[in-house]
Amino acid sequence: MIIKELKILRQHGIQYVPDLKTAVLTPLFRGRPVIKEDPTDQETEKIKKLCPSNAITTEDGFGIDIGKCVFCKECALAYPDKIAFTNDYKIASNDKNNLIVRKGDSEIKFNENIVRPEVRKLFKNALKLRQVSAGGDNSCEFELYAAGNVNFDMGRYGIEFVASPRHADGIVITGPITENMSEALQICWDASPGPKVLILVGTDAISGGMFADSHAVNRKFLEKYPVDLYVPGNPAHPLTFINGVLRLIGK
């Protein structure tokens, strides 16, 4: 009876990614975009028209806001010499304007000094999160669930998803916060005790993505509470999420 199990286990072998901070993904992975050199105004106009979720900003110089970008890589394909997508997955940050990639940026900076002190003090060894899907398209949810599976196994750092907000230290929101789900999200936030963190996962959650101006979306909730971590991606890769959270709790 047990022989079959042992055979399966032997083939199963060691499955976990040994070090989540230094794992390398396939070159084609659409991670952090990099701007080799600023496109001309006329090209910028074209790219702006091309980008489905108008993630291109031109305030002070050309920049791609990865909080809005849906990583469809159309701009890079249209102007391969100007814009390229690297497979760097460490693109989570706790400061919204760090999410804008400009020429010469080599990584997404994490702003250490705006992290709330009690977050570092309390949740260094154990962080229990409550996931709330408010309009997510089920891909971010799959990726967050995968973050707890055998390969990525965020449980090794004591981070896990729990059943009830009473047991949770933080709320993870996926999806653009639809109108029909806004009240439930507010109840879930009020139901979790004491010092708690707010994490937005996926482009839809951070900026509303494609649904930013749809009438069925109501994002007033985000104006009321400070966000501790933005995890961009469509969907956000488990490694992005785990590294972002580890940086947040100072591991």
Partner: peptide
């Protein structure tokens, strides 16, 4: 709960 109004957004024929 997941209603985002996709069918209306599909009618924006700009891009």
């Amino acid at each position: 709960y997941q209603h985002r109004g996709i069918e209306n957004l599909m009618l924006q024929n700009d891009n």
